[in-house]
Amino acid sequence: MSAFLNAREAAAELNVSRATLYAYVSRGLIRSEPAENGRHRLYRADDVRNLRARKSPTAEGRKDADTTFLESAITLIDDGHLYYRGRDAIQLATVATLESVAGLLWQCGERNPFDQDYPSPPAIPDIPSPYARMQALLAAAAPDDMKALNLRPWGVAGSGARVLRLLVSSIVRGTPNSEPIHSQLAKAWGVSPEAADVIRTALVLSADHKLNVSAFTVRCVASARATPYAAVEAGLTALQGPRHGGQTARVAALFDEAAELGDGAVAARLQRGEVLPGIGQFLYPDGDPRYGALIDALDRNGFDNEARRMAESLAAAAMDLTETAPNVDFGLATVQRTIGLPAIAPLSIFAIGRCVGWIAHAQEQYENPDLIRPRARYVGESPQTAHAI
């Protein structure tokens, strides 16, 4: 029996589409490697059969499937490439605005969900944390937006546009308006048009990344038929964790250490047994293409200074010692230091960009009649006869 299967054979064994097969690979459930001709990939037969066994019916006639598997047509990661609805995300990032990517991910066609009137944001207390301020603003605005109760695709797109503009207003401390998001951020942060183009690129690259923890959280909330406001609030809660969007703050701390220790900051971390933040992304064994796209944006706009050289030297030291490449978190921190953005910028860019993907996931989930309810496998004590506790 062969140790490997081609894509057609693997998909047939699992009784799934090739897109679903690729999703299993991207989540690390099936290992793959290039074929000898280099034009195709082969899939580990034992991984395929183990996964098939997990999905097979139980003795009670029910599927013992991992119910956290969700089919999606939004984002694909395949063979080191990132695609938004079939379009190469890296290529889009060179020219597209976040608004145009939103139209693509929200399947708006020729209609523009941003072509609407925006109410003034509600008054909220002055909250330093950008995440907490975004959440407070959404919670305050949601009760007055009755249109958000329309959970049909176009209704969700319209709500998504209002939510996105509201999040931007929380960062720029202004009123929602129709100016391109990257331009609003650049003006609020006092940087040049060239820096605005780098911000635009970063927003597009942050838009979606398959079924990560925040996207799954959003889909769970949407499956309960809560509004897009609630779904995005939940996504923000997940995003701020140090193992997700909070990684950028950990990269910033590494940069601060490097200001004192130079490249030795990498070895110092490793000697303490610590994981290097912003280094490695298991979905991209050969390196996160989003990092490279951010560096290309700096090149395209003529940014070459000491801050960038320090960051790239640190990345090279990490690759030398770990044989692992930087990811988008490292790239966002590099952009922030290079073009002189405020410390909150990486988190803000990531959250605003990712909101577009969250709305797409919510929109897709609203069209699914099922409530997401993963099954728990009980591993506690066996039932006992009644006795005093």
Rank of each mutant, 00 (worst) to 15 (best):
L104R: 04
A45L: 09
K63E: 07
L211W: 00
G109Q: 06
H81C: 10
Q281P: 00
P277C: 10
T385Y: 04
Y291F: 15
D296S: 12
R133E: 02
A132I: 07
R377D: 08
W358L: 09
A140G: 10
L205A: 13
A267D: 11
E381Y: 00
Y291R: 03
F114L: 06
T58W: 00
F255G: 03
L51D: 02
G273V: 11
R87A: 13
V275C: 01
L164G: 01
V328C: 07
G278M: 05
Q365M: 13
R308G: 06
G235H: 07
Q363F: 04
L98I: 15
P125A: 12
G280C: 11
D299P: 03
D126H: 12
D46P: 00
P180N: 12
Y229I: 07
L164K: 01
R62Q: 10
M310S: 15
V163A: 02
A11V: 06
A23Y: 10
D88R: 01
Y284Q: 05
A386S: 12
I359S: 07
P128W: 06
R18W: 00
D115L: 14
Y24V: 04
G241V: 05
S170M: 06
G241C: 10
S129P: 00
P193C: 09
Y131L: 11
L76Y: 01
I344N: 05
T175Q: 12
A148W: 03
L92S: 02
L92M: 12
D79T: 06
F330Q: 03
D370Q: 15
L21D: 05
N15T: 08
T385A: 13
I295G: 01
G38L: 09
L82P: 01
R375W: 01
A23T: 14
A231L: 04
L5A: 03
A65V: 13
Q116A: 14
T175E: 13
C220H: 08
P121L: 10
V168Q: 02
G109P: 04
S26L: 02
E323I: 01
W358H: 07
G160M: 08
V156A: 12
V95L: 03
N112A: 09
W358Q: 06
S26C: 09
I389R: 12
P374E: 04
K55T: 01
R165F: 04
M319E: 15
S32G: 08
I389L: 14
A23D: 12
G280F: 05
T324R: 14
P34S: 10
P277K: 05
D299K: 15
H209N: 11
S183V: 15
A157Q: 02
L151F: 08
E233L: 13
S223E: 05
A249Q: 15
A234F: 10
G158D: 01
G86Y: 05
R39W: 00
L321V: 04
L254P: 02
E179N: 09
R87N: 12
P119K: 08
S120Q: 13
K55G: 14
A102I: 08
V266Q: 04
H81S: 14
Q240Y: 07
S192Y: 04
A311Q: 04
S100R: 14
G331E: 09
A343G: 00
H244R: 08
Q271Y: 00
S206Y: 01
P346V: 11
E274M: 13
H182N: 11
E367C: 13
V191W: 05
D370E: 15
W189K: 08
